[in-house]
Amino acid sequence: MPHPLNSFPPDSGANAHNSPRTGENKAFVPGSGKNVAGRKGPALLEADGLTITYPGAVTALDGLDLEVPDSGITCLLGANGAGKTTLLESAAGLIQATSGSLRVLGTDPGSTNNRLQVGVMLQDGGMPGSARPREFLDYVSRLYPKPRDVRSLLDAVEIDPDTRAPMRRLSGGQQRRISWAAAMVGNPRSLLLDEPTASIDPVGRERLYDVLRTERERGVSMIIATHLIEDVESLADYIVVVRNGRVALTGTPEELRPRNTLVVRSAREMDTGALLAALPAGSTCQRTASDSYHVEVPTGIDPAVMATVSSWCGQHSVPPDLSVGDLRTALWSALRGGVQ
């Protein structure tokens, strides 16, 4: 049972990750084992001091440094206004950098090569409202030398290829699915997706996660901008948290998971004093949501700690449902800027 985000205050376990870790990502090695292509070459995205200022002196990106590996799924997580869309649109060649540099697959964003090889889904979709889904995708597919089959793509995103309804009559979620298909129709080697799961229902979202996992299996690298931690938990091989136009945190899910925190799922009130007495000195235990306790052990979570916590659960007749670390906590904390 996932935590409802709004009832989930960050705990102290993520303090170590509050400071920006820009630059550490240079040593990233794709660790998912799912990248069948195993490409070596330029990064999918490489930003160096990237600054983008909109008219009216609104600074959307403020000297952003970032390197995104050309493999697997990278989730770009940030609050509204953090700079995610600006970064993706500049990577798509739609916005010029005010200063600094940005390379996509080793070339300028928007280069002919990138337009062929990088499929883009924009936040506002960009699908013409008066056109039918299939005819528009047929048209877009003709812009590419080796497009994918439009009918099977629409099937994959669960849009009826034979619908005669113009796209403006379709729901927001359906329009979003068509934008997905439009990003993939050119058979790209990389994808830039801006909030692909926005306004898509939970069942559809799972289905679309599967579509993206399939793309990953085929060797497609991608960047997904999202404000949903759920997207990150489900998909990310690599995580970039953006805040105020800068990179606040980068790393693989494994790297970002606090190693000394144990999450205990329990809706029942439990006696934390009894647990703390049995754990190493300096340990803490907090009820962080109505259905969970966070146990932080400074010496780390070892089998002895696991056994202690399990037996504590047993004393309260709670089935031990324990997970080490909590990615959500670390991300939540990075999103909020460590303000507690």
Binding site: A92, G93, L94, G110, T112, R115, L116, V118, G119, V120, L122, D124, G125, G126, M127, P128, G129, S130, V140, L143, Y144, S179, A182, G186
Partner: peptide, 17 residues
């Protein structure tokens, strides 16, 4: 005007067109 409103020119700007 409607292509601009729907953002389709922006989307096409990411294709080889």
């Amino acid at each position: 005007a409607f292509e601009r409103r729907y953002g389709s020119f922006a989307f096409l700007g990411t294709t080889p067109l």
